[in-house]
């Protein structure tokens, strides 16, 4: 456990150095940052006005108000994709192996990477929130509950970043990661992010209701007070207790993927 003691001593500094690396890369490629910030706005227009005109929600609420919390969560879930791509890149280009031979803690690299992801996500939520307000989304609950929703979103983003990092280490090459990316893009589709799950065929609805993304979306709708349609009586447990379920899901994912990542980072063998 000497590694753990050493981690507590040097990890924050190492993690800050890794964060500095991430931000410097952003500065060199501002285009990436712009895409990260603008893509959710494009989805808002696409779903809010294009598909949304054909989507009805139970209880007949405003679809765009229903959609915005979903988009917040899909931004958070995007951590899987960005974490995966950047990790696979580091692995393929040999940067990861350089880190591995440095006398720093085994936690510093993954912690630094995922912490950076959370910061970028926090920045990415702001333009989306402003655009949401412009198209009719409102915070109808208390300020405390709204802050809780944002905190939950960042927690979920952090969990997503760990998943992405693990998948990136498994993928090893940028090409494989790129192909996996198109799959992770579909994850928010099989949930209540864009459409209510009630209308889905049974097996798909089961998947969608138990998708962690659905719990987080439902929790955000509840915390922001966005006329969340009351969960159907036959909905799965997570949708009846969305805030509890979202927290449990996030913590469970962290509890699984942090040790997996650190183990994989430490023991990768070729």
């Amino acid at each position: 456990m000497s590694d753990l003691t050493a981690t507590l001593g040097s990890s924050p500094r190492d993690a800050i150095a890794m964060l500095g690396r991430y931000l410097t890369r952003m500065r060199h490629a501002p285009g990436m940052l712009v895409i990260t910030l603008v893509a959710p706005l494009a989805m808002l227009v696409l779903f809010g006005y294009l598909f949304g005109s054909a989507i009805g929600i139970p209880g007949g609420g405003n679809y765009r108000e229903y959609l915005v919390p979903g988009l917040f969560v899909s931004v958070a879930a995007n951590g899987i994709l960005t974490g995966m791509i950047s990790t696979a890149q580091d692995q393929q280009r040999g940067v990861m192996d350089r880190f591995r031979t440095l006398p720093m803690s085994r936690f510093a690299v993954p912690f630094g990477q995922t912490a950076s992801e959370v910061l970028v996500a926090a920045a990415g939520l702001l333009p989306l929130a402003l655009a949401g307000l412009a198209v009719g989304w409102r915070v109808r609950g208390t300020a405390g509950a709204a802050l809780g929703a944002f905190a939950l979103l960042l927690l979920f983003r952090w969990a997503a970043a760990w998943i992405g990092q693990y998948l990136g280490m498994l993928a090893k090459s940028e090409e494989t990661a790129g192909q996996l990316a198109s799959l992770t893009f579909m994850l928010p589709m099989v949930s209540n992010t864009y459409v209510p799950t009630e209308g889905m065929p049974g097996w798909l609805r089961f998947l969608a209701d138990w998708n962690p993304i659905s719990s987080v979306v439902a929790a955000c709708r509840e915390l922001f007070g966005n006329a969340a349609p009351v969960a159907a009586a036959d909905a799965a447990w997570p949708l009846h207790h969305p805030v509890t379920a979202a927290l449990l899901w996030s913590l469970l994912l962290l509890a699984v993927f942090i040790p997996l990542c650190v183990h994989r980072y430490t023991h990768t063998d070729r």
Binding site: R21, R25, D90, R93, G94, V95, D97, R98, T101
Partner: peptide, 13 residues
């Protein structure tokens, strides 16, 4: 210290 095919620097920096 290690340099080689597998230990590299970050090309974006």
């Amino acid at each position: 210290g290690l340099t080689g095919q597998y230990a590299s620097v970050d090309g974006d920096l």
